[in-house]
Amino acid sequence: MDQLHPGARWIFRADMYKGTLGFIAAIIIGGISVALDEGFSVDVLRWMGFVIAGVAVVALLVGEVYSRLAHSYFSYTLSQDSVVIRRGIIWQTETMIPIQRVQNVEVERGLLAQLFGFSTVYIYTAAGQEEASSGWWGAKWQEKEGRLPAIDQQTAQNIQTLLLKKSKRAKGGL
């Protein structure tokens, strides 16, 4: 059972903030159009500011709680014959990828990853990455099947080489 790099929290936070940005944009557009309608009312703009600040504070708090929980509920195990990824706070999923089925391993370093010194690892199989299932009340937060959001750089490299070597050996061949 291995935990993610602490920087993974930033990825989870960013997931949360992304959803809020659209919301804030809608408030700004709505607020400005109402303000113009009222003859450029400063009062309306002030209220808009308060609402945005409120939304931002809520987003920050929720993002903080969510990212910590998501981080502590995410773990992975690399064993002789499979990779097991455990994730999810309420809807918990345990994905098992037989090493023999690994098609490709990708290591990605985005902006956050470079800032906080981690790598994102994608483990691909031949199965589609669809995962569009939704619960009762709308879509639930979905992670890609074989994604490890944040792993220490060196470890990520090691995982990549190890998995590719093992999957080749497991498949037999030349």
């Binding site: 918990q92 345990e94 994905t95 098992m96 099947e145």
Partner: peptide, 26 residues
């Protein structure tokens, strides 16, 4: 068979069961 998922939602944890999804190629 490509990968196998075990899922446990609210209902599953209340009633103590797991759902299994078996993903295939193509």
């Amino acid at each position: 068979i490509q990968n196998v998922d075990i899922e446990r939602g609210i209902l599953a944890r209340l009633l103590n069961f797991s759902s299994v999804s078996i993903h295939t190629a193509g």
